[in-house]
Computed example of a mutant assay.
Amino acid sequence: MVEGLLTKGYSVNVFDIRKGFENDKVQFFLGDLCRKEDLVPALEGVMVAFHCASPAPSSDNRQLFYKVNYMGTKTVIEACIEAGVQKLVLTSSASVVFEGRDIKNGTEDLPYAKKPIDYYTETKILQEKEVLSASDPEKNFFTTAIRPHGIFGPRDPQLVPILIQAAKSGKMKFMIGDGKNLVDFTFVENVVHGHILAAEHLHRDSPLCGKAFHITNDEPVPFWEFMSRILTGLNYDDPKYHIPYWLAYYLALLLSLVVLLLSPLFVIKPTFTPMRVALAGTFHYYSCERAKRDMNYKPLVSLDEALQRTVQSYPHLCQAK
């Protein structure tokens, strides 16, 4: 986000709990997202705020999710209004409408999930509702939410490193389902492009006000094909064996019940969960038509180029042959 904004000539302030990178063109502000007095100095004189902060989805700290994603977002809104910020663009998630069942070319009109797949998603729903309802022309304050899906790219600390770790431990020999389920994956530069377009098109009487928008690569791909291209690109074997979806789901459900029963005695963090089975074995891809219409969105980087650039950026994870 920072690099994309600087490339377009914008001046940038960054607020974070710690300084995660060096850039002499950026003014850094450190503090607690939930403390308005920490936030306001970073927002003074700012026209647009991008709210991208969240604990990693892989965390199991429910209290932290609620504090950052919900309470922190309420504080961000209050601080923006107090500092005179005119536009707030939220990084939301397409998972806010996903309940573990197939979604094919889903639109933004789908209802929020009544049974979210995890607590991260549950708090992202609360967060998005809070931001979109805060759009208020009388206060000269306009909000929108970007819903990316399956973000990946160079320097990603989540998807690729976790996938390679699973391959090293022998957990990537099996694919769940028949391997035909289509999923959206979105290159990080396209996600950034969507955010910046949203900020540039957000204004009084704009169709973006108080609305959410899917941003993807607009190229749904079989889930296991995508995973295989990363694995083989880094010299690992792709999955060869199929497990029926229903069998994998009920095995994961049974395991989660066993973990729940044993939780008073042992601390166990299973990686084979019903949520992960659903993500790997169902269709979940989304329409970008609203973003194309209302903010002229078009992906800048194709999926083929994005995969190539991503794999090439991880030479340290490449297995010697």
Rank of each mutant, 00 (worst) to 15 (best):
I125G: 09
W224H: 11
D109L: 12
A145E: 01
L182R: 07
G210H: 07
H203N: 09
H193T: 00
P137F: 01
K124M: 10
F213A: 07
C209E: 13
H149E: 10
P157S: 12
D136G: 09
K173H: 05
D178I: 02
G150E: 03
G150A: 07
L197D: 01
H214L: 10
R147G: 00
H193E: 15
V221L: 11
T143A: 15
T123I: 03
L126S: 11
P207E: 02
L182F: 08
R101T: 08
P161W: 08
H203I: 00
R229P: 00
I230S: 08
E200T: 08
L202A: 04
L126C: 10
H193K: 12
I146M: 08
L234C: 03
S228L: 09
K173N: 12
L208P: 01
K139R: 15
A198C: 05
V191M: 10
L182N: 04
V131G: 06
V221E: 04
S133F: 06
K168E: 13
G153Y: 06
V188R: 01
K180T: 15
F142W: 14
G233W: 02
T143V: 09
P116Y: 02
N217Y: 03
R229W: 00
H195T: 07
E99L: 07
S133T: 14
E128S: 04
C209K: 02
G210V: 13
L231H: 04
A212P: 01
K104D: 04
R229K: 14
V131C: 09
G150Q: 04
P111L: 09
P111Y: 02
G179N: 02
T144E: 07
G106F: 02
H203C: 11
I103A: 12
E189R: 13
L202R: 01
